[in-house]
Design a protein around this nucleic acid. Structure first.
Length: 715
DNA sequence: CCGTGCGTCTTTTTT
DNA sequence: AGACGCACGG
């Protein structure tokens, strides 16, 4: 990598600094030494980062390949790259701009041998990972009903994020049974992974850190390469990422980190907010710059966000301000149920479009992916174009996963996980029993599964099974060699034909399967784009696609559509009109975060993130009734709603529009006490008081409809 | 070896 | 409500 020739480029340094406020300008010009940029939401940090990079090149003549910029998503990286390119031209392509994971893949592909891996290693996605863990638990004879594979996977992942290998984890682990099970599975799992030449997401970082720690010369190569390092969203880095960055920056100490502790929302996956809080301790000579002017939202929206976040105790106080006007008030809508909530969103979207706005201006944010369903249904009915980011995406579809598994198994013949997924798709009469015998045979003779298949006749299978297995083995080895010399697209076509995978769906009469074919064709357009862009290997293509984050993969090709995503996925994005739905206790904040104050504070950070996505108009909705797991539930409005200053909001709701005519004998529903019957009425108008007998345990209560939410039940 | 039907349970958030 | 795992019958 030292073969790079000095590149020449001319950059107009004056234009780089144009239009920046004094703090932003200082952030761009402070190029040497450690720099901490505390960037509030919407404070123009991307602009600062891109210009800082351009300034390094233009003013200090730093070579592009000596610059590293780590972002949170591939999309952010791509966007940053485009913006830098506008400033510095083609030289931008020599800058490493990527996520932690993509960067580590790039490094590991070069250095794999040094770690005892081959450079065509597979990357296990969470589903493959789960499959591998289940296999390990099976091998170790653990009862998977007693110890959930999911929890084990979680523990292993957490350990890796903390840079604990199997041995360290065993030492550090708690004394619970689950921990000791996890420790044993962890060891077995790593053993399996190295046997199949595969790494999981967490390994990508962990192994890179190990490489750097164990082999100082390798570390030094990269320290020399990355003389100027930028890390975005530093508040969301975990232990392993922190270590990685600090190892790289150790030599030149030109480390610029950008973050906002109020937007820390990934503690649950190991992110440690003290990484950013302790930056000045780690680098006593650091410069610190605060960006507090928000260029995104109206002051109403910002004031609301500030008011909410102020309730957190664990934070550095800061105050975002905006020069934009007040704008509209925040609308809070109390919906009857999910359908009503969705109807409200539809009505407001249509209103926005009716007033000359675009669908793409609107975004619906929710706490959990499952909440998108109700909205989706109503959008379909109302013919509102929409685009869902995250959740079940293109790459999660069965046919795509299958095809990718084929590609992985062919690219890395040791990849048993992928092989097992597709060995019998389409049906080849190689079933559970045969595979079990093959796996045992492979294990006893230290063979990979594919190698064992090649020697099927020795595996004691029976004539029919042996023949089926041999045929499959021939197909796979053949494809492995066909791969060479073909572009990814050409190879994929060939593979789809020879494996009979395409045929399987073509011959099916089901409408669903026609769709699957379309998705496969869609994948072919993805490979075509890849071939055109960089003509990489199959392994490169697989790595690129498996590292796409939810925000990176947009489903559907509709341009002008309402966006829908989780609040997590919305970080870093902005939209004129934002709907935050499901603002109810147990949904948001989520019930599983409510037992710790840390949990609640992180939910509040998430609320802050959600609110600050909005540029002009914010709608927040909640349901008084919600059906969850087929069960009717009533939740209180979210506590975060109480934290919004009265003068900034405007409340409405079905409950307030319909004034029921109360009468004795009427059946009603109360949010806490459930269903009851009106037994008596006293007073009138605002003073009206009802005596209601509720089901069994709640007995008879006096209720004022003016102050309590009571609903009449039809029939 | 494969398909079907019943009973169980519910991953919050994601690179 | 819906997905998934498991047991059973062909």
């Amino acid at each position: 990598m030292t073969s790079e020739v000095k590149s020449s480029f001319t950059i107009d340094t004056d234009s780089i600094l144009k239009g920046l406020n004094p703090e932003q300008k200082k952030a761009v010009e402070t190029t040497e030494g450690p720099l901490l940029i505390l960037a509030g939401a919407g404070s123009g940090k991307t602009s600062v980062m891109t210009r800082r990079i351009a300034y390094l090149m233009g003013h200090h003549k730093v070579q592009p390949w000596n610059i590293l910029a780590i972002t949170f998503t591939n999309k952010a990286a791509k966007e940053m790259n485009e913006r830098v390119e506008k400033l510095v031209g083609e030289a931008a392509s020599d800058i490493w701009m990527s996520t932690f994971h993509s960067m580590c893949v790039k490094i590991l592909r070069r250095e794999a041998e040094k770690l005892g891996y081959q450079n065509n290693f597979s990357i296990l996605d969470p589903e493959d990972q789960m499959a591998a863990i289940k296999q390990c638990m099976l091998d170790l004879n653990y009862d998977m009903k007693k110890f959930e594979p999911f929890s084990v996977q979680w523990k292993i992942s957490a350990a890796k994020n903390e840079l604990l290998g199997p041995d360290e984890f065993k030492k550090m682990a708690g004394k619970s049974l689950l921990d000791s099970v996890a420790a044993n599975v962890y060891r077995e799992y790593q053993h399996k992974l190295s046997g199949i030449n595969a790494l999981d997401f967490d390994d990508l970082i962990f192994k890179t850190v190990q490489l750097f720690e164990d082999q100082p010369d390798v570390l030094e190569t990269y320290q020399e390469k990355f003389q100027y390092i930028h890390v975005d969203e530093y508040q969301d880095t975990n232990r392993a990422q922190y270590k990685l960055v600090n190892l790289l920056a150790k030599k030149y100490r030109n480390l610029c980190v950008v973050g906002d502790s109020d937007q820390a929302i990934y503690r649950w996956r190991g992110a440690d907010i003290s990484n950013i809080l302790n930056f000045e301790r780690d680098y006593p000579e650091a410069n610190v710059i605060m960006l507090e002017q928000n260029y995104r939202s109206t002051s109403t929206i910002l004031d609301a966000a500030n008011a909410v976040i102020r309730n957190n105790t664990q934070r550095k106080d800061k105050n975002l301000w905006s020069a934009k006007g007040q704008g509209e008030k925040i609308s809070i809508y109390a919906a009857l149920d999910q359908a009503d909530e969705a109807a409200y969103v539809v009505a407001k979207v249509q209103e926005h479009v009716g007033n000359g706005g675009q669908f793409r201006d609107c975004t619906v944010l929710y706490r959990a992916n499952a909440q998108s369903r109700a909205i989706e249904e109503v959008f379909l009915q109302a013919a509102i174009p929409y685009k869902i980011l995250g959740g079940m995406t293109f790459y999660d579809r069965r046919e795509i996963k299958d095809v990718m598994a084929y590609l992985k198994a062919i690219s890395n013949p040791q990849d048993e996980i992928s092989l097992l997924r597709i060995v019998n798709v389409p049906k080849r009469n190689i079933g559970e029993g045969t595979l079990k015998r093959l796996l045992d045979f492979a294990h006893d003779n230290s063979l990979t599964l594919l190698e064992a298949m090649g020697k099927a006749e020795q595996a004691d299978l029976g004539a029919k099974a042996t023949e089926a297995v041999k045929k499959f083995h021939l197909l796979m080895t053949d494809l492995h060699f066909t791969q060479e010399g073909l572009s990814v697209t050409e190879f994929l076509q060939e593979m789809l034909r020879r494996t009979g995978y395409r045929e399987m769906y073509e011959s099916s009469p089901k409408e669903e399967d026609k769709n699957r074919l379309e998705n496969i064709d869609e994948l072919l357009t993805v490979t075509r784009a890849f071939d055109k862009r960089r003509r990489g290997t199959l392994a490169d293509f697989l790595a690129e696609t498996s590292l796409l984050s939810d925000t990176d993969k947009e489903t559907g090709k509709k341009d002008n559509a309402v966006h829908m995503m989780t609040m997590h996925a919305s970080k870093g994005l902005e939209f004129p009109v934002v709907f935050v739905i499901g603002a109810e206790e147990t949904i948001f904040p989520h019930s599983r975060s409510m037992d710790t104050t840390g949990g609640i504070e992180e939910e509040r950070n998430l609320c802050y993130v959600a609110i600050t996505r909005a540029q002009e108009k914010l709608h927040i909705t909640y349901c008084t009734e919600r059906t969850i797991f087929g069960q009717l539930q009533m939740n209180d409005p979210s506590r975060f709603l109480d934290e919004l200053p009265e003068e900034l909001v405007e409340k409405s709701g079905s409950d307030f529009q319909v004034v029921p005519r109360w009468e004795i004998g009427l059946r009603v529903r109360h949010p806490q006490w459930g269903i009851g019957v009106i037994m008596d009425m006293t007073g009138k108008d605002d003073e009206l008081e009802l005596e209601v007998t509720f089901q069994s345990r709640h007995g008879t209560k006096k209720v004022k409809p003016k102050t309590t939410k009571l609903r009449v039940i039809e029939k």
